[in-house]
Design a binder for these strands. Structure first.
Lengths: 182, 182
DNA sequence: CCACGATACGGAGACAGTCTCCGGTTAGCA
DNA sequence: TGCTAACCGGAGACTGTCTCCGTATCGTGG
């Protein structure tokens, strides 16, 4: 990759992260290009689909997911607290900007999605938490971890789209947790 | 309202219901106008916002909601079965077309939404089921019915957007039900 | 150091969807 | 039947998506 291309690529991603946060995932791509000081053609060559841009924007996000799961697993306290704490973190993690929870959660099952690798990181993080609790015999039989991602993702999605504040989200996550725990 | 206006109104609603079902809630409104044999101006005069059209489309839907809740309440069997059956029906009811679950669920808390009255019908239906179970002492303390709508709506939303089939939805609803029941 | 080919740029513009405005038409009453 | 308020419809302004291709730039091999 040529040096000028790399420069533009990085700049676009940086600007996109900012604009997505300001205006949500529906933001105009041409405006992102403009703000990044490049033509639309340049943006679309690097990122043929909107989701490719999202994927690039989420690159740095992977580290935060791994940190969060590590922290969750060292939690001292009841299983319920651990699970609930992780769910809250999960919601926070996927709520990078307006529209993100829906996008991420619906890509969760799709192997062809451009953001697949990011979803896998998240799914694996969630797996570790659930399996950790399952070893304690704390999880009901027949629970699949992908379901858990979808359930919590669903809560994050409605919170995002109805812009609820975190105080309204917590009790919903508690219901999900209670439904999973023995 | 003049007779020709009424005729156009009805025709637009009828066509919109069809097109939304075919193409989802993102369908082109100009195309709906065209198919209904009217100009865009006519459509936008009757329905200034897309949601106004949705509201009209859902008019006939109200009856089905009321029938469904009546049927659910007469259910013979365990509380869990009753609740789960209602949830499945709830999901089916709000999945009128692609995009509908998200739209309806996010409007659930907004008193200014054009589809507010429809949401109220749904919320009240859900209330009746939950309160019925609460009288039996079957529901955990601290559960609010609006949360229930959002949770089940969230499941429907992820199912819609990730187009999962009903077999994948059922276990998620079961988790929610278990989280609500004592 | 420079010339040249591969690589990348960027903006004009085609296309699609939203929504408005207003000249022309029509319903329905007197 | 004639009049007026109500209504129609489509041209077109505007915004966002995405492509194409002439032009510019990078970086390498001589």
């Amino acid at each position: 990759m040529r040096a000028d291309a790399r420069r533009n690529y990085d700049r676009i991603v940086e600007v996109a992260r900012e604009v997505f946060r300001e205006q949500g995932y529906d933001a105009s791509l041409d405006e992102i290009a403009k703000r990044a000081g490049v033509g639309p053609g340049t943006l679309y060559r690097h990122f043929p689909k909107r989701e490719n841009l999202l994927d690039a924007v989420m690159q740095s996000w992977v580290d935060r997911v791994n940190e969060a799961v590590a922290k969750a697993l060292t939690h001292e306290g009841s299983d319920r607290e651990l699970l609930l704490g992780w769910f809250e973190e999960y919601v926070r993690l996927i709520s990078v900007h307006r529209g993100a929870p829906a996008k991420i959660t619906s890509a969760m099952g799709d192997p062809d999605s451009p953001i697949m690798t990011k979803c896998q990181v998240l799914a694996r993080a969630n797996d570790r938490v659930i399996e950790h609790l399952r070893e304690d015999g704390a999880i009901r039989d027949g629970v699949e971890t992908l379901q858990v991602c979808r359930l919590v993702g669903g809560v994050a999605t409605v919170a995002d789209q109805g812009d609820l504040d975190p105080d309204a989200v917590r009790p919903m996550l508690a219901v999900v947790a209670d439904g999973l725990l023995r």
